Simulated scan of single mutants.
Amino acid sequence: MSMTDVLNAADITKAAEAFHDPESFCHKKFFHLVGLKKKSPADVNKVFHILDKDRSGFLEKPEVQLILTGFQPNCRALSDKETKHFMDAGDKDGDGKISIEEFASMVAES
């Protein structure tokens, strides 16, 4: 399954372009622009599983750093600062990773 099976390709491109510049990433704005906020819980789960490259059931720091490439392969990696901000926003239980429930909560809050 690819991201375009769940989200509109034009929305993905628009969202990716909005955060092309380093230190510009905001997960709330990104989730809104990419159309994830309007999706069903089942679709949010599908997106999570696409981003969970190692199939661990969690998004760990290396996966978060490459989150934009999970939506569109030619995107940039997040900076260390952007990655830390995303992890801090999502990792509610402090275990160093983001669960599917924590990810769904992040999307809902955006």
Rank of each mutant, 00 (worst) to 15 (best):
residue 104 A to T: 09
residue 77 A to K: 15
residue 17 E to M: 13
residue 20 H to K: 14
residue 5 D to F: 05
residue 76 R to K: 14
residue 22 P to K: 11
residue 61 K to Y: 11
residue 50 I to Y: 02
residue 52 D to S: 06
residue 22 P to T: 07
residue 24 S to V: 03
residue 11 D to S: 15
residue 71 F to R: 01
residue 99 S to T: 13
residue 70 G to L: 02
residue 77 A to Q: 14
residue 22 P to S: 11
residue 28 K to V: 02
residue 7 L to R: 03
residue 9 A to L: 14
residue 37 K to Y: 09
residue 50 I to H: 03
residue 63 E to S: 07
residue 27 H to G: 05
residue 102 E to M: 04
residue 6 V to A: 09
residue 57 G to C: 05
residue 85 H to Y: 09
residue 52 D to C: 05
residue 102 E to A: 01
residue 14 K to A: 15
residue 69 T to S: 15
residue 75 C to T: 09
residue 89 A to R: 04
residue 43 D to F: 01
residue 36 L to P: 01
residue 7 L to A: 02
residue 14 K to T: 14
residue 15 A to W: 03
residue 15 A to G: 09
residue 103 F to Y: 08
residue 42 A to Y: 08
residue 102 E to W: 04
residue 82 E to Q: 02
residue 79 S to M: 07
residue 66 L to W: 13
residue 93 D to S: 07
residue 95 D to P: 02
residue 92 K to C: 07
residue 2 S to K: 12
residue 104 A to R: 10
residue 3 M to E: 03
residue 107 V to N: 00
residue 45 N to E: 13
residue 4 T to C: 10
residue 52 D to V: 06
residue 28 K to T: 11
residue 57 G to D: 03
residue 12 I to T: 01
residue 59 L to Q: 04
residue 103 F to N: 00
residue 80 D to T: 09
residue 84 K to Y: 09
residue 90 G to Q: 06
residue 56 S to G: 14
residue 58 F to E: 11
residue 98 I to K: 02
residue 57 G to W: 01
residue 27 H to T: 03
residue 25 F to G: 03
residue 95 D to H: 05
residue 37 K to M: 08
residue 28 K to C: 10
residue 11 D to Y: 04
residue 26 C to V: 11
residue 33 L to D: 10
residue 50 I to F: 03
residue 90 G to E: 07
residue 45 N to F: 09
residue 108 A to T: 12
residue 20 H to Q: 12
residue 30 F to M: 00
residue 26 C to F: 06
residue 50 I to C: 03
residue 64 V to L: 07
residue 2 S to N: 15
residue 44 V to D: 00
residue 99 S to H: 04
residue 96 G to M: 08
residue 37 K to W: 02
residue 31 F to L: 01
residue 69 T to N: 15
residue 49 H to Q: 11
residue 52 D to R: 06
residue 94 G to Q: 05
residue 83 T to L: 00
residue 27 H to C: 09
residue 80 D to Q: 08
residue 1 M to F: 15
residue 71 F to K: 03
residue 99 S to G: 11
residue 37 K to F: 09
residue 4 T to G: 06
residue 45 N to D: 11
residue 58 F to L: 13
residue 14 K to Y: 14
residue 84 K to Q: 14
residue 30 F to Q: 02
residue 107 V to A: 02
residue 95 D to G: 02
residue 105 S to F: 08
residue 76 R to C: 03
residue 10 A to Q: 15
residue 56 S to C: 06
residue 2 S to R: 10
residue 105 S to R: 09
residue 1 M to E: 14
residue 22 P to I: 06
residue 54 D to Q: 11
residue 88 D to N: 15
residue 106 M to G: 01
residue 53 K to S: 14
residue 59 L to N: 05
residue 98 I to F: 04
residue 19 F to A: 00
residue 68 L to C: 02
residue 44 V to K: 12
residue 84 K to T: 12
residue 6 V to N: 06
residue 51 L to A: 02
residue 37 K to Q: 13
residue 65 Q to H: 13
residue 75 C to F: 02
residue 20 H to Y: 08
residue 18 A to V: 05
residue 63 E to F: 05
residue 98 I to D: 06
residue 3 M to Y: 01
residue 107 V to E: 00
residue 72 Q to L: 14
residue 50 I to A: 04
residue 60 E to G: 09
residue 72 Q to C: 11
residue 79 S to G: 12
residue 50 I to D: 04
residue 109 E to W: 12
residue 87 M to W: 07
residue 44 V to I: 15
residue 86 F to S: 01
residue 60 E to I: 10
